[in-house]
């Protein structure tokens, strides 16, 4: 199946700005699914609110465009009621970790077989450039005109601590890694998180004087490095890319099957 067979042409043109990193994520995601050979009708994509969340509408799966921050809660209901379906939940950084932070950590904790993709552009784009929990200390935003004093989450560390059994990170500068990690995340039995650092030249780039899309991609190339690289040893400030967690633990829907067995057995 060709990549375009996954797209809903009726839905285009998309609403992302020129230079936005989210299209690269869409591309990598579709290629991952194509390579895995999963039937379109076996995939449910659930998203929340924000620029990133519009990704669901563009794709020819069962798509559920929900409310801000709650995508994982909706997805949990879909998965529990039909465990054979593949659940993919793309979220923005504000969607996943500000308003949706509680649902995020609890989905990690349950280890339910859902793939969460955090498209982290460190800003609220759709509302016009306010700081998010991922903007970081010192960032500029329309609601941080005198420099941001909020400290950032580390998506990888947060996911690990909350109990996700697959955690990876890459950037929109590294599209092959996007496909590779999303593939592994979908194949993983349990809750998987893929953080993809993405660029928002319209707001984050402009507000923080990083430049346009090209400069922001250069920035992601320069500021990241593979896990345990020599570069990291020399410069601890570099952000690591790669697979941080990949472990097998009982998956939630399978555990619930045991609950049913116990209830029916009267034990």
């Amino acid at each position: 199946m060709a990549v375009k067979d996954f797209l809903r042409e009726r839905f285009f043109p998309h609403l992302w700005c020129p230079g936005c990193g989210h299209g690269t994520v869409l591309n990598g995601l579709v290629r991952a699914i194509e390579e895995l050979g999963i039937r379109k009708s076996d995939i449910v994509m659930v998203s929340g609110i924000g620029c990133s969340s519009r990704i669901s509408g563009y794709l020819d799966f069962h798509t559920l465009h929900t409310i801000h921050g709650r995508a994982l809660a909706f997805a949990t209901g879909v998965k529990m009621s039909r465990p054979k379906l593949n659940l993919i939940v793309p979220m923005g950084d504000g969607d996943a970790l500000a308003i949706g932070g509680n649902h995020f950590i609890h989905a990690c904790r349950r280890n339910i077989d859902i793939t969460a993709i955090v498209m982290n552009n460190r800003i609220y784009g759709m509302t016009g450039g306010q700081y998010s929990p991922l903007s970081g200390y010192g960032a500029a935003a329309t609601t941080a005109p005198y420099s941001n004093i909020d400290h950032t989450f580390d998506v990888v560390e947060l996911s690990k601590a909350a109990g996700a059994t697959f955690v990876a990170r890459t950037t929109s500068y590294h599209p092959k890694e996007i496909t590779k990690y999303i593939k592994k995340a979908i194949q993983h039995k349990g809750f998987s998180v893929v953080e993809i650092m993405s660029q928002c030249p319209t707001y984050f780039g402009r507000k923080n004087k990083i430049g346009g899309a090209v400069e922001m991609l250069e920035y992601m190339k320069d500021q990241t490095t593979p896990i345990d690289s020599k570069a990291k040893a020399e410069n601890p400030d570099l952000i690591e890319r790669g697979i941080f967690v990949e472990k097998e633990l009982p998956e939630y829907c399978e555990e619930y099957e045991k609950v049913i067995e116990r209830a029916k057995g009267g034990a």
């Binding site: 659930v46 069962h62 559920l64 929900t66 409310i67 709650r70 809660a73 909706f74 997805a75 949990t76 209901g77 879909v78 998965k79 529990m80 009621s81 039909r82 379906l85 509680n102 649902h103 609890h106």
Partner: peptide
């Protein structure tokens, strides 16, 4: 989350 989850399950 409770109401969101049941909405998801209703759709299946």
């Amino acid at each position: 989350a409770s109401l969101c989850a049941i909405i998801g399950a209703s759709l299946t």
